[in-house]
């Protein structure tokens, strides 16, 4: 897309810097941490011990991890130049609707495609470890998504800009200032295009990233469905989930 007159190259460079800095500062694990932990796997005994936990205990554990990750994502959003200029209603809508998407993008940094494992609580876990959740379809969808996204081999810069672009989706329901968000998202996408152009792979790689959006949305919806079902079966446990988790994924 041509650069609109209102958006100078300087502005695009500024947003790239802001988003990338924000991503690096708010990643739970640095690339060095991930390299160091790459071969730290759950033993078969440890996997079995997770599998024999009750659904309530395993859900609680996952809810706590997701909540921790959300706090970092809120901080990521806050540090994106322009996000805090939006009204607080829109900031909350964007975070509620987009934090799971950003979490999924961030997850692919912590995914090892060689052995199909994902970093969970300090060690790499296979999908079978999450059996006690009783959500095999959701777990496989998350692992498949991480596998497919990691195939694109995004750089940290690209991942940062893609996360910001997804977070700043102007099509979320109940937003007040759609135009302002669209402008900000356009700027982020232009920043992403600029980064990709430097690599000489622009259109193809961007198209691959954007093609993952429907899968992301379907995983987010599946997570909400599973949570609602869990809430029906175990209302007391669901009530003890971290308040931030309940706030973000509440109806």
């Amino acid at each position: 897309n041509p650069v609109p007159e209102s958006c100078s190259l300087l502005e695009i460079e500024h947003i790239i810097q802001s988003v990338v800095k924000s991503h690096i500062e708010t990643s739970q694990y640095s690339t060095e941490d991930l390299k160091r932990l790459a071969w730290s796997l759950y033993s078969p005994e440890e996997t079995r011990s997770h599998q024999t936990k009750s659904a309530e205990v395993m859900w609680q554990q996952c809810a706590i991890h997701i909540t921790n990750a959300i706090q970092y994502i809120v901080e990521f959003a806050k540090r994106i130049s322009g996000f805090m200029d939006l009204c607080q209603n829109d900031q909350i809508i964007l975070l509620k609707a987009g934090c799971m998407d950003v979490l999924l993008i961030r997850m692919c940094r912590a995914f090892n495609p060689i052995n199909n494992t994902l970093l969970f609580d300090g060690k790499f876990a296979s999908p079978q470890l999450f059996k006690a959740l009783g959500c095999d379809d959701l777990v496989s969808a998350v692992f498949d998504f991480a596998k497919n996204l990691s195939r694109i081999q995004m750089s940290e810069e690209e991942m940062a800009l893609f996360s910001a672009a997804v977070l700043l989706s102007p099509d979320r329901q109940w937003l007040t200032d759609v135009q302002k968000i669209r402008k900000l998202q356009d700027k982020v996408y232009m920043g992403l295009q600029r980064c990709l152009q430097k690599e000489g792979v622009s259109d193809e790689k961007l198209a691959k990233m954007v093609s993952k959006l429907p899968a992301m949305r379907s995983i987010c919806n599946l997570h909400i469905d599973k949570l609602e079902f869990f809430r029906l079966v175990h209302p007391e446990t669901a009530f003890t989930f971290p308040p931030l988790y309940r706030e973000v994924f509440g109806s």
Binding site: T26, Q71, Y72, V74, E75, K78, L244, E247
Partner: peptide, 20 residues
Amino acid sequence: KEKHKILHQLLQNSTSPVDL
């Protein structure tokens, strides 16, 4: 506002509750 109390707080805090 009450419904999103924690998100409001996190957004208003100049420092994050997480150890960044």
